[in-house]
Design a protein around this nucleic acid. Sequence first.
DNA 1: GTTGAAAAAACAGAGGA
DNA 2: TCCTCTGTTTTTTCAAC
Lengths: 146, 146
Amino acid sequence: MDQIDLKILSLMHENARIPMSEMSRTIAMSQPAVTERLRKLEEQGIITAYRAQLSPQKLGKHTTAFVLFRTSNCKDFVAFSEACPEIVDLYRISGEYNFLMKVLTETTESLGSFLDKCSPLGFSTTLIVLSTAFEDKSLVPSHEAE
Amino acid sequence: MDQIDLKILSLMHENARIPMSEMSRTIAMSQPAVTERLRKLEEQGIITAYRAQLSPQKLGKHTTAFVLFRTSNCKDFVAFSEACPEIVDLYRISGEYNFLMKVLTETTESLGSFLDKCSPLGFSTTLIVLSTAFEDKSLVPSHEAE
DNA sequence: GTTGAAAAAACAGAGGA
DNA sequence: TCCTCTGTTTTTTCAAC
């Protein structure tokens, strides 16, 4: 893991669909060498996936919320959450609550319906997202990767 | 926006580096037609980015936390957060706190240092992530896209 | 890690349902 | 309008070094 690997990670975080030929030009290294480094980064589990980022708004999801949840049956709660399309992220946390989840719904009204659906499993506190200042900041600052 | 577009979004969320030729085979449509649909999905802002997902653990970030923050100077706080490498996501929220942020640090100790660094700007409550049940669930359920 | 040739994929234009 | 077909260019893969 050297500066070149960090540069590859940085570029792949910016645009995962960049052609390897273009990447090799940018970092001034032959294309097969870059491809081989990328393969190793995947193999080592440093790169876990390549994902298209979708706009929730454009897909009709106009409400984002974080919901803190307290339940006594963690296993059932995780199973329920996996089957719940509204829940996009689920974290087990320390403190008064067991779980923190990120929830996307069409409207505040459908968020209400979702919370009703959850209520048999425990009790919750909802934090409505007013705006997203930023998301997915790179773990590999570009100035470190030069 | 029809079933084919949803299938494209679903496949791109699973693997953003899938070759267009393979995608066109999967959905049984010619490659230029799929490319054109993808171009339009990007143009409409439905696809906002393609990102490599990196493993925080493999990059030495062993501690994940959500920090609720209350500050009276939102503008300065956002500027501070943008410059803070530990903060990967920042949301403005309703309720007792102004902000919710996702924070990645090397250890619980460096999380402590980070919180010390933030303390002049307001007051906070920290939720330590014990484990991530799941993250980035698709906004386009695959069964809807068939 | 580099080079260079073969295979594959992406792109761009013409034409059809 | 949206798709398919086809030829051209670009990219990827894989050999040898």
